[in-house]
C-alpha cells in the first residue's frame, strides 16, 4: 500500500526532480502490478519500509518496531486519510470555483486556494452588534429598492450592489461589478452603505445626483471607485467629481444639505438594515446574496 502513497508523493516531487521521477515510475509499476494481482518486483515497498524504519531505529527503537510491525496498517491509514483529504480538496476546489471560497457560499474559513482570504473579506457593517454574521439571514424581502439609484434595462437579471465608497473590499469588488453592469441582461441597483461613517455624507450627494439625473450615478461611481487620489472625507473633492460628471455642484451641494435628502438617506439605511447585511460588499443577484469581493465568474454563475 505504501506504493500508492509513494506514487502520489513522488509524482508531485517528480515535477521538480528527475530522481523522484524515477521513483514515481517504480511506484507506478508497483501499483500497477498490485492492482493486477501480481507481486511488486521493484522492491520499492521494502526499500521505503526499511528506510523509514531504519531511520527511526536511530531515535526510538520502540517506535521503529511498532511501525515496522504495523507498516501495512499504517499505510492503509495514510491511504484512507489521503482519499478523505482528496475528497475535501475536490469539494474545496468546486466551492472555490462556484463561490470564490473553498468552504461554500459566504463562508470565511481558511481556503488553500485563497490563503489570505482576500475573496471572502468584507468591511463590517455591524461593528457594535453582538450577533455573529449570518449569511442565512441575508434577504431582499420587503426591502424597498425603489429608494436607491438604479439602472433598469428591463432585463431578466436583477443585481443589487450594496457597497461602501470608502471600504477596500467594495472597491476591490467594483471591477467585477462593473462587468455585470455593462451586460445588457442585468438590471442594476446600487445602495451605498457607509460602513465608514466619514463617508455618510456621500449618500446624500448620491441621492441628489440620482434626483438630478438618473443615469449619472454610474459615472459618479466609476470615478469614485476607480480613483485612488480622491479623499472621500473631503466634501470639496467629492463635489469636484460631481462637476466632472456634468452636474452643477452648487445645486447638488445645496440639495445634499436639505432635510428632505437626509430623510431619504435615513430611510435607505433603514431599508438596508432589513436585508440583514453584515458587511460590504454584499451583492444580491436574482435574490441570492454574495458577500465579499468575488471573481466575476462567481457573479456570472448566478445570472439567468
Amino acid at each position: 500500500m505504501i506504493c500508492i502513497i509513494a506514487l502520489i508523493v513522488f509524482s508531485i516531487l517528480g515535477i521538480f526532480s528527475a530522481t523522484h521521477r524515477q521513483l514515481a515510475k517504480e511506484a507506478f509499476d508497483c501499483v500497477f502490478r498490485r492492482i493486477t494481482f501480481r507481486k511488486c518486483e521493484s522492491g520499492l515497498d521494502i526499500r521505503l519500509k526499511s528506510r523509514i524504519t531504519g531511520r527511526l531505529m536511530k531515535r526510538s527503537p520502540i517506535l521503529a518496531s511498532k511501525i515496522h510491525r504495523h507498516f501495512e496498517l499504517i499505510s492503509w491509514a495514510f491511504i484512507i486519510l489521503f482519499i478523505v483529504s482528496f475528497i475535501y480538496v475536490a469539494i474545496g476546489g468546486y466551492n472555490y470555483y462556484l463561490y470564490g471560497n473553498c468552504n461554500g457560499p459566504n463562508e470565511d474559513g481558511f481556503c488553500i486556494f485563497d490563503p489570505l482570504g482576500e475573496k471572502s473579506k468584507f468591511s463590517e457593517t455591524q461593528s457594535c452588534s453582538a450577533e455573529p454574521p449570518n449569511p442565512e439571514s441575508l434577504t431582499l424581502f420587503n426591502v424597498d429598492l425603489s429608494l436607491f439609484p438604479s439602472y433598469d434595462k428591463n432585463a431578466e437579471n436583477d443585481v443589487v450592489f450594496i457597497g461602501c465608497y470608502g471600504c477596500p473590499y467594495t472597491r476591490k469588488a467594483y471591477p467585477a461589478i462593473k462587468k455585470l453592469l455593462d451586460r445588457k441582461d442585468v438590471n442594476f441597483v446600487f445602495a451605498h452603505f457607509p460602513a465608514k461613517e466619514s463617508t455618510y455624507f456621500i449618500s446624500n450627494i448620491l441621492n441628489c445626483i440620482n434626483e438630478a439625473d438618473k443615469d449619472k450615478f454610474i459615472e459618479f461611481n466609476e470615478l469614485i471607485f476607480t480613483s485612488d487620489t480622491i479623499s472621500l472625507k473631503n466634501e470639496d473633492e467629492i463635489f469636484e467629481v460631481v462637476e466632472k460628471i456634468g452636474l452643477d455642484k452648487k445645486e447638488i451641494k445645496h440639495c445634499s444639505y436639505l432635510e428632505r435628502t437626509h430623510e431619504i438617506t435615513k430611510l435607505q439605511m433603514s431599508e438596508l438594515q432589513k436585508t440583514g447585511i453584515y458587511g460590504t460588499p454584499t451583492v444580491f443577484i436574482n435574490g441570492e446574496a454574495v458577500v465579499g469581493p468575488k471573481p466575476y465568474r462567481v457573479y456570472k454563475r448566478l445570472l439567468k
Partner: peptide, 14 residues
C-alpha cells in the same frame, strides 16, 4: 525476512 530489508535497515539505522 527479505535479505534486502535486512541490508536496507542496517544501512538506514547505522
Amino acid at each position: 525476512a527479505d535479505p534486502h530489508e535486512i541490508a536496507l535497515l542496517l544501512d538506514s539505522s547505522a
